[in-house]
Amino acid sequence: MWLIALLVALVATIQLRSEAEVQRSLVGTDATSLAFLIDDLHRANDSLDAEKADLTSLRARLQSGQSGAADQVLQSEADRLRAIEGLIAVHGPGIVMEIDASGLTALDLQDALNNLAAGGAEATDVNGHRLVMGVPIYQTSDGVAIDGVTVSPPWTISVIGDPNRLGLIADLMAQQLRADRRVRQATYRVEADVVIRSVVSAKPFVYAIPS
C-alpha cells in the first residue's frame, strides 16, 4: 500500500516537473518572432519562385535557338545588371524622403538605407549620390561621407521600388526620426515617377578573381 502511494506521488511529481520544464521552454520562445519569420519566409519564397520562373523563361529562349535570341537575352541582362549596380540613370515609382538634422552619423544613414532596402528599394540616391550596397558610407571629422564626398544635411533620399511597401517603411522611419532630438524635420512623399540620374563609378576588381 505504502509502495503504491509512493509510486503515485513519484509519477505525479515527475509528470508535473516535466510539464513545468516544457512550460519554461515555451516562456523562453517568442512565438511572435516565429510568426514574423513565417511571414518573411513566405515573402522570400514568393520572390524565389518569381526568380525561378524568370530564369526558366530565359533558358527556354536560349534553348529555342532562334536567331539573335542569345544576343537579346544578354543585352537585356546587361541592362538589368547595370541598373542593379547603379551604373545607369533610372526612373520608376517610389518615395522621396527629406531629413533635416544635425549630428546624424554614418550609422544613421546606413540604418535608413538598410530599412529602405528591406522594404524593396531597387535604386537609391542621397543628395545626388547613387547608393548600392558596396558604396562606402563612413564617418569623417566633417560628417558623413559617401564614396569620399561629405554629404551634409538636409538629406534628400530618393528611392525607386514598390511605392506601397516603401511608403509604409518611410512612414515608420519618419515617425522614429521625429522622436529623435537631433532631427528638425523628417518627411516623405510617394511619387509616381522618381528619376535618379546619379550613377556609381564602375571600379574594376583588383583582388577578387572569378573562380
Binding site: 520572390s47 518569381a50 541598373a83 542593379i84 533610372v90 526612373h91 521600388g161 528619376v195
Partner: peptide, 12 residues
C-alpha cells in the same frame, strides 16, 4: 543564389 529582380526600375 537568390532573387535579384527589379520590377519597378526602368532606364531613364
Amino acid at each position: 543564389d537568390s532573387s535579384l529582380q527589379i520590377t519597378h526600375v526602368s532606364p531613364a
